[in-house]
Design a binder for these strands. Structure first.
Length: 612
RNA sequence: GGUCCGGUAGCUCAGCUGGAUAGAGCAACUGCCUUCUAAGCAGUAGGUCAAAGGUUCGAAUCCUUUCCGGAUCACCA
C-alpha cells in the first residue's frame, strides 16, 4: 500500500532524525492538493511542535532524509506541508499488488455471529418509502459485515397481530363479498391494505355522524379545557371514541379478543389474509434483492419476556408496584422509570424485545445484534440496551441501534391517513419506466433480446433508487421528491454503472492482456495516480463502513472512484495508447477499477450491467 | 420542560478523530460526439459552513451559550 508504506518510512525517518516515536498511522498523510507539485503531503506542524523546530525547517530535514534513503523521488516544502513525489516503482507495485489480490477489500473470517434485523413491516398495509430505506440500509450493512468476515444472519420481525390487522379483517368480512387477490388481480399486500383504508373510511363516516348526536354533545360539554374548539376537540377525541362508543371499534376489538382466545374462525381468516400479504411482500423484496434468513412473528413473540421479568424481579433489577405491574428504575443512567410488565401480567413492547433477544441468543449465540429501526425509537433502544446490560447478557456489549432519519416529502411527513405515502411498488415501477424511456432513446441495447434489455433496465432503475437512498448518511433525515423521481444522471447509481460499462467495453475490445508488461511503464500520469490512490483506499473504506454501520461511506466512495475513472477515460487513451507498456498499465488499472466498483456496488446490493 | 439528532450553494448531499483557496450533483448558462458507450467530459455562475463567544500557529470540524427544525419522554407497537 502506497500510503501505509510512506507513513512507515516517514515514521522511521522521524525516529532516526529526532528520536521521536510516532505511530505510522498517526502521521497525517493525504494526497497532495492539485495546486501543488507532489503526490502525497505530510502535515509537519504537529511534529515540528514536538521537536521544537520551525515547521519549514523540520519539513526540509525530513524531506532530505527521505530522498537520501530512496523512499521518495523528490519533495517540496510549503510552510509546514511536506509535498512528496513518489518513485515510479511505488505506483507499479501498488497496481500489481491490487491486481493480484483475490480478496481485495475482504476481511479475514472472524468467527463471530452478527444478527441484523431490518424491515419490520406491518401486515395491514404495503411497504412504502420508509421501508425501502430501512431494507436497503439493513441488507447493505449485512453484506458489508459479511464481507468483513462476520457470520451474518438477516432477520425480520413481522408485526402480524394487533388491532390494525383486525381492522383489515373486519372490513374484508363486511364488504369484500369473498373477493381475493387472485379474483381481483391485486397484489396481496395492496389488497389487504385497501381493506384497512376502507375500514378507516367507514369508521370516519361513522364518527362524523356521531358527532352531531347527543352522546357527542355530552362529551364535548364535559371537556377539560372549555376553550377548545369543537373541531379540535373531536380530532383529538378520535381514539377515545374508537374505544368507547364506536360500533365498528367494538367489533374490531372483539375480533382481537377472539384472536387472542384462539377462535378458530378468526385465526383462519387472519392466517389467510397474512398469507396474501406475505406473498406481496416477497414480490417487493425480490425486486429489491432483499432477503431474510429467518423471520420472527410478533404473534409469537408478544408473549415472550415474562420469564425474564421474573428473573429480573428475583435479581432485584426490577421491582413490583402494588397493582402488580413491574418496573425498572433507570434514573441513575439518566433515564426514567420504565414499565416492563402490565398490571394484568401481560408483556409490553419492550418486554417482548428482551424476550426476543434471549430467544435469538439461544438460537444463534450471536456476538452482536444490529437493529435497523427509525430514529423515533432511539429512546426505546437506549432503555432496552440498558436493561440487557443489567441482565449481564453475553451479547449486551454488541448491541447497536442503526438509527436512521425518516424519509420526508417536500411538503412534510408522509401520512397514510392523508394518502401522502409513497408506495414502494409504485416508486419502483415509475423509475423503471423512466429508465426504459432513456434506454430506448439511447439505443445502446438495440441488438439484445427483450429479456436481456429488461434485465439491464431493471438493474439501472434499481441502481438509481438504491444509490439515491444509500448515499445519504443514515442518521440524517432525507427529503424525497416524487415529482423529480430519481435522477439517472450526475451523482447517481447509473453514473457509476456507466463507468463500469465503459470499462467492460474497453476490456472486450482489447485482444492482448499481459500484466507483466506494466513494469516497463515509464510516465505515470496524474489521472492514473489519482485512480490508483482511490482504489487503494477501498479496504479502509469498507472497514469504516463496517465499524460505523454506514453504507453511505461505500456509496460516496464508489461515486468518487467512478468520477475519477470517467475523467481518466476522457483524458487518457487506453486502447490507443502509444506504447505497449502504457496499454497494459491502463488496461490493468481499468480492470482493477472495474472490479472495485463492482465490489462496492455488491455491498450496496446493486448489480452491474455489462452494457447500458 | 428533560433527553437525543440535525442546520454547509436556490435544491439534494459530501467534508466533522482540527490543516493549504469549503467540495460534488441537480437546476441555469457555455463548449465538446467521423477516435475506447455523451447515463460522459470541460467551463461560467452560485457560500457570513444557523449566530455569538472560546480553545490554537491553524476551526465547517473541538468547547460553551443562543436560535431554528425533527424525534422522544404511554399499562400503543
Amino acid at each position: 500500500m502506497i500510503k501505509q508504506d510512506l507513513q512507515n518510512a516517514l515514521s522511521m525517518t522521524i525516529k532516526e532524525l529526532y528520536g521521536l516515536e510516532i505511530a505510522a498511522s498517526d502521521l497525517l498523510v493525504v494526497p497532495t492538493k492539485k495546486e501543488y507539485k507532489g503526490d502525497f503531503t505530510l502535515t509537519v506542524f504537529p511534529i515540528a511542535g514536538k521537536v521544537k523546530k520551525a515547521p519549514p525547517v523540520a519539513s526540509k530535514e525530513i524531506g532530505d532524509r527521505m530522498v537520501t534513503k530512496g523512499d521518495i523521488l523528490s519533495y517540496e516544502v510549503v510552510q509546514g506541508f511536506l509535498n512528496m513525489e513518489l518513485n515510479r516503482q511505488s505506483w507499479i507495485h501498488a497496481l500489481t499488488n491490487i491486481y493480484n489480490d483475490n480478496s481485495f477489500g475482504h476481511g479475514a473470517p472472524k468467527d463471530q455471529t452478527v444478527l441484523v434485523e431490518y424491515c419490520s413491516p406491518n401486515t395491514n398495509k404495503p411497504l412504502h418509502l420508509g421501508h425501502i430505506r430501512n431494507m436497503l440500509l439493513g441488507s447493505s450493512t449485512a453484506r458489508i459485515l459479511e464481507v468483513l468476515g462476520y457470520n451474518v444472519k438477516r432477520i425480520q420481525v413481522i408485526n402480524d397481530r394487533g388491532i390494525a390487522i383486525c381492522k383489515s379483517m373486519l372490513a374484508w368480512q363486511k364488504w369484500a363479498h369473498g373477493a381475493t387477490p387472485e379474483s381481483t388481480h391485486i397484489k396481496g399486500d395492496h389488497f389487504v391494505g385497501d381493506y384497512y383504508v376502507l375500514f378507516e373510511r367507514h369508521f370516519r363516516e361513522e364518527y362524523t355522524s356521531w358527532q352531531s348526536g347527543p352522546e357527542a354533545e355530552k362529551e364535548f360539554s364535559q371537556r377539560k379545557d372549555l376553550s377548545t374548539a369543537k373541531e379540535d376537540f373531536f380530532s383529538e377525541y378520535k381514539n377515545v371514541y374508537f374505544n368507547k362508543f364506536s360500533p365498528l371499534g367494538k367489533e374490531a376489538r372483539e375480533m382481537l379478543l377472539s384472536w387472542e382466545a384462539n377462535d378458530p374462525e378468526v385465526k383462519a381468516l387472519w392466517a389467510k389474509m397474512n398469507q396474501w400479504v406475505y406473498k406481496g411482500f416477497e414480490e417487493t423484496c425480490n425486486k429489491l434483492g432483499v432477503y431474510f434468513d429467518s423471520s420472527d412473528y410478533e404473534s409469537v413473540t408478544y408473549l415472550l419476556g415474562k420469564d425474564a421479568v421474573e428473573k429480573g424481579l428475583s435479581k432485584g433489577i426490577f421491582y413490583k408496584k402494588e397493582d402488580g405491574s413491574a418496573w425498572i428504575n433507570l434514573e441513575d443512567a439518566g433515564m426514567d422509570q420504565k414499565l416492563v410488565l402490565r398490571s394484568d401480567g401481560t408483556s409490553i413492547y419492550i418486554t417482548q424485545d428482551f424476550g426476543t433477544a434471549q430467544m435469538r441468543y439461544e438460537k444463534y449465540h450471536m456476538d452482536k445484534c444490529i437493529y435497523v429501526v427509525a430514529n423515533e425509537q432511539d429512546y426505546h433502544f437506549k432503555v432496552l440496551f440498558e436493561i440487557l446490560k443489567r441482565f449481564k447478557e453475553p451479547y449486551a456489549g454488541g448491541l447497536y441501534h442503526l438509527s436512521y432519519g425518516m424519509v420526508e416529502l417536500p411538503e412534510g411527513k408522509m401520512k397514510s391517513r392523508e394518502g401522502t405515502v409513497v408506495d414502494a411498488d409504485d416508486l419502483i415501477d415509475e423509475v423503471i419506466s423512466e429508465a426504459k424511456a432513456n434506454a430506448s432513446e439511447r439505443g445502446e441495447l438495440n441488438g439484445l433480446s427483450s429479456e436481456d434489455q429488461n434485465k439491464i433496465i431493471e438493474s439501472i432503475a434499481l441502481g438509481a433508487i438504491k444509490f439515491f437512498m444509500l448515499k445519504v448518511n443514515p442518521k440524517k433525515g432525507m427529503v424525497f421528491n416524487p415529482k423529480e423521481s430519481v435522477d439517472l444522471q450526475g451523482q447517481t447509481g447509473p453514473y457509476i454503472q456507466n463507468a463500469f460499462v465503459r470499462i467492460q467495453s474497453v476490456l472486450r475490445k482489447s485482444n492482448s492482456f499481459d500484466a507483466s508488461l506494466i513494469h516497463e511503464y515509464k510516465n505515470i500520469l496524474p489521472e492514473e495516480k489519482e485512480l490508483l490512490i482511490l482504489v487503494e483506499t477501498y479496504p479502509s473504506v469498507v472497514n469504516k463502513a463496517g465499524t460505523e454501520y454506514d453504507p453511505s461511506e461505500i456509496a460516496n466512495y464508489a461515486y468518487a472512484l467512478a468520477k475519477a475513472f470517467h475523467k481518466f477515460y476522457h483524458e487518457v487513451p487506453i486502447l490507443r495508447a502509444d506504447d505497449p507498456a502504457a496499454l497494459q498499465f491502463r488496461l490493468t488499472l481499468s480492470k482493477v477499477v472495474g472490479n472495485t466498483l463492482r465490489e462496492a456496488f455488491d455491498l450496496l446490493g446493486i448489480s452491474m450491467p455489462e452494457r447500458m
